[in-house]
Amino acid sequence: MKIQTNALNVLERTSHYLKSGLLKKQPLWYKVVAAYPPQKDLTRKVKRVNEVLKNASELEPSKKALYKTRIQPNRLKNKLYQSQKLKFLEDDLRKLFYEQHPWELADPKNLIENEKIMHKTLNWKTIRQLYVPLSGESVVQRTLYILENENLSLLNAYDKARFEYYRVKIEQESEENISKEESAMYGAVFDKSLVEFGFNKEQEIIEKWKQDAEAATQLLEARFSSRTTAAEEESGPQDKEDVFGLENIESFDDVAKS
């Protein structure tokens, strides 16, 4: 179906239909809409950057000190249709946690929803959860649980959850290291470490850069030499000036003598 862009003209169109006899009876909403016509076009259109800037410049006071006194219906900001701002305590706690621990943002997060997990009610009695990976969100949810169930202030609850998180993280990291050591002791041989892998990747790029740079240098040199030979041919070899007086000196011993 074609996008209905003329929703604002609904009254106009209906009145035409009534006049022509296409509609025999006035719709119930007809008088109401006539009294309170729609002021905002609700269809979503792609806004170009220039258009936005143009509108912004209109809002600025004019240089001639003349101001718009009449409000046009399409310029009127109607908050009725604007979505409400949602404010949750979680957002504040999340912001605080990630600003205090910016490197936690470096742990990748999977945003693909899992319906089975989504409908589960999780009990945040402990910070460890079976279905949810440990991340900053665990601290946020645990803080909310402590706030509800324990008699602590918001910041104290947050700090408690934060230290619990640290503890579990320390445990996880130690376990990972120990398991790696254990497997090494049992004879496991590991492939290249991540540092080495990264180093080799860099090496590849540097080698490529070196090849490109060499090719570019050769090209430059070739151009330069062709230009100089062309210039020599034009001016002739006899014009070449001996700036340093090198022709008269036979060897470096002469330089030393002079």
């Binding site: 205090q100 621990h101 490197w103 640290y166 990291e173 130690s174 290291n177």
Partner: peptide, 9 residues
Amino acid sequence: KGTGGFSYR
């Protein structure tokens, strides 16, 4: 706070 989330070693 902490180690900024970088390492927990």
